[in-house]
Simulated scan of single mutants.
Amino acid sequence: MLSIHSTSVELEGVHTDIMIQGFADRILVLVTQMGKVGNLIQASIPLTTPLLSAQEDSLFPVPSAAIQLTPLLGGASSEHLQTLHSLYAAQIATIIWVEEAKKMAVDRRSVVVGIALRDADERKIFHGVMDYIGRLIRE
């Protein structure tokens, strides 16, 4: 799969670019409000790990505790941002894996997430990004 899906949106008044590109062995997702790749984190999960769908009180599927996050490039400037970037990587990967499973994808590719965000309402930006990731992956 070498398809590319991308969008540019305003989230909380901040221009945000989101791009998803599939490769044979992994999927690259870039989320930037700064025009650069930012911190790169790879998310992977064993094929035998079941994926949980969204619960009634959640808008998004629940990330598994079995997700392995590996920093690839760059780093967060604080422990808080490191945790936030890890949350983004785990949630984005989970959305992609759940959507691919619906399409009967045989293998579960690793997801590499690049994140470069400005200071803003973290919760609203997070929900906006996840909503658009879901839309793009369903295209």
Rank of each mutant, 00 (worst) to 15 (best):
P61D: 08
L28I: 07
E99H: 05
G114L: 02
L72V: 05
V14W: 03
D131R: 10
I137P: 00
L136W: 14
Q42L: 04
F126T: 00
V37K: 03
S8N: 10
D121L: 07
A66D: 14
S58F: 08
P61S: 10
I96D: 02
P50H: 08
H15L: 11
A65R: 04
V112F: 04
S110K: 12
E99P: 09
E99Q: 07
H80K: 10
L40S: 06
S53M: 10
R109Y: 06
V98M: 13
S44W: 01
S3H: 12
L84G: 07
T32F: 11
L40E: 03
D131T: 05
K103L: 12
Q42G: 04
P71A: 14
S44C: 08
D25F: 15
E139F: 15
I95Y: 13
A65P: 00
I137A: 04
E139D: 14
W97L: 12
D121H: 10
F126Y: 01
R138N: 15
V29S: 02
D131Q: 09
A76H: 09
V106D: 15
P71V: 11
E139P: 15
P61W: 01
I96N: 05
V112Y: 04
E100K: 07
Y132R: 14
I27F: 05
R123V: 02
T16C: 13
H5R: 15
G35C: 06
L59Q: 08
I4P: 01
A43T: 06
I115P: 03
S44R: 14
V14C: 13
P71S: 14
P63L: 09
D131A: 01
I41T: 15
I41V: 14
A76S: 13
E12G: 12
S58Y: 06
V113M: 06
I4L: 13
S3N: 11
E10K: 11
W97D: 03
M104S: 06
P46Q: 05
F126V: 00
Q21S: 04
I45Q: 04
T49F: 00
H127W: 01
E122V: 01
S44Y: 01
T48L: 13
L59C: 05
E122S: 04
L52W: 04
H85E: 09
V106S: 15
Q21Y: 01
A93Y: 03
N39Y: 02
T83G: 07
A76G: 14
N39L: 08
L59V: 00
I20T: 06
V129H: 06
I95A: 04
S64P: 05
S58I: 03
Q42H: 09
T7K: 12
G75V: 13
M104R: 10
S86Y: 07
S86P: 05
Y88S: 03
D17Y: 14
Q82D: 09
I137Q: 06
A65S: 03
V113T: 13
R138L: 12
D107H: 13
I18H: 00
I125Y: 00
L136S: 08
A101T: 05
E99T: 05
H15I: 12
D107Q: 11
P61Q: 08
I125C: 03
A43Y: 07
S44A: 05
G134P: 01
S58H: 10
V113I: 08
T94Q: 11
E10F: 11
T94R: 12
E99S: 08
I137W: 13
H80Q: 07
K103P: 00
V106N: 15
V9K: 15
P63M: 07
L117E: 02
I20G: 00
G134D: 08
G22Q: 01
P46S: 12
I4S: 05
I20F: 08
